[in-house]
Design a protein around this nucleic acid. Structure first.
Lengths: 156, 156
DNA sequence: TTCATAAATGTATAATTATTTAGATTTCGG
DNA sequence: CCGAAATCTAAATAATTATACATTTATGAA
């Protein structure tokens, strides 16, 4: 596997469809896909992807991707919110973000944000055409932007 | 600290209101609260609580509680709000606190907060299932937590 | 109470994961 | 091209976290 971007993509796909309990395990799965790297690199990759290690109820551990990385809809579909151009703008002030929408759309879009961006966002409060987004601590503006782009992009 | 349940509660509260990057760090915070345990026990506690370790965008790591064990209530309460499990979580970001509730409950609970916590809280803004709580200057997170515990878990 | 059993914990250590360091590779502006 | 700067990586190591094992502590039935 040639480059980094490619590798990150492969890692993402593996984690989406498997229970992976350790980096060594993931290393092996990667090597089966012709991705030969060391644990050090993998650790950095996981950090980059913000992959969390979480305990499961069965006593094992699992690496999980941040939820915004998961597909919202199946392949080839489009996001109605975006298709209708319901999101008009996204701006920041201090630690807060404000999303402007077409009238009436705020609640619906806020619901999507709440559900897809739990890792970045503490909560949202929606009016009729405005959403106040409260990011978690340590989450940067770029992270919010990225999340919004992924969550509301038309392709995937 | 006497028993395990108690300790788990303390751990939960610490993780809810602080960025904790390692178990050692958490151990120290626990010892400040008269909770003297070893790293081994802590590791087991975190596994029990299903606390995940996740990378932040600032390059550090953070232990995060699973969203479903965020309830702040204690057992055996008589407050209707809590009795119905209407309050789902309480988290902080910067100077703000965010309370998540069951759908439709936010306004009612916000009213309670406004009226019972005037001393700690400047005001609240409620959506449908989210309340933004703006603490007064100088009010600490622990104060808010305590206020919420008292307001929503005492017999009336 | 007393014994049996289960639960909880600490110690020591294994296992795992993060990072430092140094070197390789790529990129980009002359 | 050339070299500087940035990016990427492996190897070694440091740091952190999980667990095997031993011991203690709680629980409960007779």
């Amino acid at each position: 596997m040639k480059n980094k971007r490619n590798r990150l993509q492969v890692i993402t796909e593996i984690l989406r469809s498997n229970v992976v309990s350790s980096q060594d395990e993931l290393l092996k799965m990667l090597s089966e896909k012709q991705c030969l790297i060391t644990q050090a690199t993998l650790s950095r990759d996981l950090k980059l992807l913000k992959v969390a290690k979480t305990p499961l109820s069965n006593g094992a551990y699992k690496y999980i991707l941040p939820s915004y990385n998961k597909p919202i809809l199946s392949e080839g579909t489009f996001n109605p919110m975006v298709a209708h151009g319901a999101i008009l703008s996204l701006e920041f002030s201090g630690q807060l973000a404000v999303v402007k929408t077409k009238p009436g759309y705020a609640s619906a879009i806020a619901w999507d944000i709440d559900n897809k961006a739990n890792q970045q966002v503490l909560g949202t409060i929606a009016g009729d055409d405005t959403i106040l987004v409260i990011p978690r601590e340590g989450v940067r503006r770029e992270d919010i932007l990225e999340m919004m782009n992924i969550t509301f992009s038309e392709k995937e």
